[in-house]
Design a protein around this nucleic acid. Sequence first.
DNA 1: ACCTGAACACCGTTCAAGT
DNA 2: ACCTGAACACCGTTCAAGT
Lengths: 211, 211
Amino acid sequence: MPVMPKKSYHHGDLKNSLVKAGIGILAREGVSGLTLRKVARKSGVSHAAPYAHFSDKQALIAAISTEGFKRLYEAMDSAIEPYADRPLEQLIAGAWAYVQFGLNDPDHFKVTFSGVLEKEKDYPAFVEISRRTFDRVVSMVEACQRANILRGGPPEVLAVNIWGQLHGLVSLLIEGQISHKVLDKYSTKEIFVTALSQFTLVPVPTDILSI
Amino acid sequence: MPVMPKKSYHHGDLKNSLVKAGIGILAREGVSGLTLRKVARKSGVSHAAPYAHFSDKQALIAAISTEGFKRLYEAMDSAIEPYADRPLEQLIAGAWAYVQFGLNDPDHFKVTFSGVLEKEKDYPAFVEISRRTFDRVVSMVEACQRANILRGGPPEVLAVNIWGQLHGLVSLLIEGQISHKVLDKYSTKEIFVTALSQFTLVPVPTDILSI
DNA sequence: ACCTGAACACCGTTCAAGT
DNA sequence: ACCTGAACACCGTTCAAGT
């Protein structure tokens, strides 16, 4: 009995398949479950095959992180889109999209932002999407400042602060560091609205926030 | 030639030594360099010896995290001490101690707060020091509210927000996510003072912040 | 150009055995 | 009670060889 040729020797789009497989494993087994060998197995190739496309595990993680950042950028973009010329609404919707991304896929968020990728500076695609996202936030902040919705001061600093506020709360929530005493009494939404209100000079419209 | 008895068969205080060794490795080689076998080697015992004191690697990580949290608590306590009955100064000094802890030993900070420890709820000592620290912050916030230094509202929510703000900024700084365009123009100190100013109803006294 | 299979060094964990 | 040494399954990485 001759061996059946299993489809074909070449995979077709292995590089892409590896990234997708990695994201899947991340969602189901977490950061510690993400191994190169599992990713290869899931893509139906030998454990050495990934090295044809990624120089090492960090390079695959860089690709997964970059994809995470891109998804985040897209999510923020779609969330903002309905609110042309309404900077406050844009800010809130964008912020909420960031939060949702973190809470919906905490391990992808972690890989993208929490130092699993060790030398992000070595990966130009990651640096690029990071820069683009930040620039977008800065221009939203500037629009808010012009509309007297945010205080004055250097917009980059304000953008970093707002980003930091959201990032910190999402991180603490994901890691389960926020005590149940607090979470039983106040919803995630309340906590974030209170946080954003520290920055804005006008009340935060809560009707935008889905869920 | 008979074998020299190498000191003694028993280590003496292996449990403690393993935690210290782990913290050392963390500082020099980062999270990915922290292995049980290295920790054992550094303590001069076989690679199976740690299992007499810790059920698995996560249990050692829990001990390292708990020690990190204790050091943080102590650091905040000493920073606050000089400012009895001056809630604003206490808040600033405590916040700055948190930031310093993160920037001085980023990998210990990461292990303590960024999900390297996977089920912190299983480790009562960790949960306990976490609770104590948070309670301390809440009571500082309450004192600030009474002195009209912070806005009203549920103190736990405000405490979570302030903690989240600091935590987010420290995390982004550690991970190198804050662009050089910003860091070249504004110091860490400036960024944190601006951040804290969003919360306070009075100007933030910067003379407290060492460095 | 893309992939396989064997090999190597390293890791976490277990367990029978030694002191 | 505390530690060792051998063993096992798994991992990242390399490399000669196959298609």
